[in-house]
Simulated assay, not measured.
Amino acid sequence: MKRIIIPLMSWFILGCGEDPLPKPKALLRLEYPEANYKKASIPLPFTFEKNELTESIGSVKTSGDAIGVDVKYPSLKATIFLTYKKVENDNINNLLRDAQNLTQKHTIKADEIAQNEFLNLENKVYGMIYEIGGDAASQSQFYVTDSLNHFVSGSLYFYAKPNYDSIYPASEYLKKDIKHIMESIRWKE
Results as ranks from 00 to 15, higher is better:
K85Y: 04
Y84Q: 06
E122R: 09
H180M: 01
D111F: 08
Q104S: 14
M128L: 13
Y173Q: 00
N51D: 09
I42D: 07
E55Y: 03
E31I: 14
P22V: 15
Q100D: 14
D135Y: 06
D90S: 10
D177N: 10
R3V: 04
A160N: 13
V125P: 01
L82N: 01
R97E: 15
E122D: 14
K38T: 15
L28H: 05
E131F: 12
Y84G: 07
L95T: 01
D90C: 06
W11I: 10
H106S: 11
F12P: 00
P24R: 02
N89T: 07
A78S: 05
I185L: 07
M9P: 02
K77Y: 15
A78T: 03
D98Q: 15
M182I: 11
D111A: 06
E49Q: 08
A40P: 04
R186W: 07
T83N: 06
L53I: 04
I129C: 05
G17I: 09
P33Y: 09
A35W: 02
E49R: 04
N89I: 04
N91F: 00
V69E: 02
S155W: 11
L27E: 15
V125W: 02
E172Y: 06
I6S: 06
E122K: 10
T47I: 12
N93E: 15
D65H: 02
D165M: 11
D111V: 05
T83S: 10
S184T: 05
T107W: 12
S171N: 09
S41E: 15
T54C: 11
L148T: 15
D165T: 10
S138R: 10
Q100M: 10
D165R: 09
I80E: 00
A40W: 07
E49H: 09
Q139C: 06
L27K: 12
D146F: 01
W11E: 09
P7D: 10
H150V: 00
S63G: 10
T47D: 13
K161F: 15
M128T: 08
W11K: 06
V144W: 08
L148S: 13
A110Q: 00
K77T: 14
F46N: 02
E52L: 10
I129T: 05
T62R: 13
S166V: 15
W11H: 06
S41C: 05
K105L: 13
I129F: 12
K86D: 03
R97A: 13
Y126L: 07
P45F: 15
M1F: 15
I108S: 11
K25R: 09
L174E: 03
F158V: 01
D146P: 02
Y73L: 01
F151Q: 03
P162I: 01
I132M: 00
Y164W: 14
K38E: 12
L8M: 08
D146H: 00
Y159P: 00
K176V: 05
K2R: 11
P162D: 01
S166G: 09
A99L: 02
M9L: 15
Y126T: 03
E131R: 06
N116D: 13
S166K: 13
C16Y: 13
E18P: 13
M1Q: 12
R3K: 08
Y126P: 00
F46M: 08
K176S: 03
G17H: 12
L14N: 08
R3F: 07
N149K: 07
N94R: 12
R186Y: 03
F118D: 02
L53Y: 05
